[in-house]
């Protein structure tokens, strides 16, 4: 192994003490994926294959080899499988994302964010 390859390994051990979730959404992605497998919306093998493809794409695009990259790939895999199974078409997801964004922007600090607070419901 060359010295540069040895250096490349060092971050692995450093990551050992990291919390498994840096942000709540990362945990929610895995929770939803697990729920979908258990409900039969898609199969475990399809999840594995799609996540593998997204990870490969992220690596090919030069993304950092980090937890953030992993969880973003997992989110894309989840979105893709849900669109493919017609459970959540991409257009529906985009419209709802925009509605939530507007709801956050229109809700004063301290108040619960509700979709009804959106300036205009996109869906």
């Amino acid at each position: 192994m060359s010295p540069s390859e040895t250096d490349a390994l060092k971050p692995l051990k450093k990551m050992d003490a990291e919390p498994v979730f840096e942000e709540l959404w990362q945990a929610q992605v895995l929770a939803i994926a697990d729920a979908m497998v258990n409900a039969g919306t898609f199969k475990a093998a399809a999840w594995s294959k799609t996540l593998g493809r997204e990870l490969k794409a992220a690596e090919a695009a030069g993304a950092d080899d980090t937890a953030q990259t992993y969880y973003k790939a997992a989110l894309r895999a989840l979105e893709g499988l849900l669109a493919q199974s017609d459970a959540v078409p991409f257009a529906t997801l985009e419209a709802r994302r925009e509605a939530w964004k507007q709801a956050y922007l229109a809700t004063p600090h301290g108040s619960p964010v509700d979709l009804a607070n959106a300036v205009s419901r996109a869906d």
């Binding site: 979105e79 997801l93 994302r97």
Partner: peptide
């Protein structure tokens, strides 16, 4: 990503 997960 948090917004997208919330939407999903």
């Amino acid at each position: 990503p948090a917004l997208r997960v919330k939407a999903l």
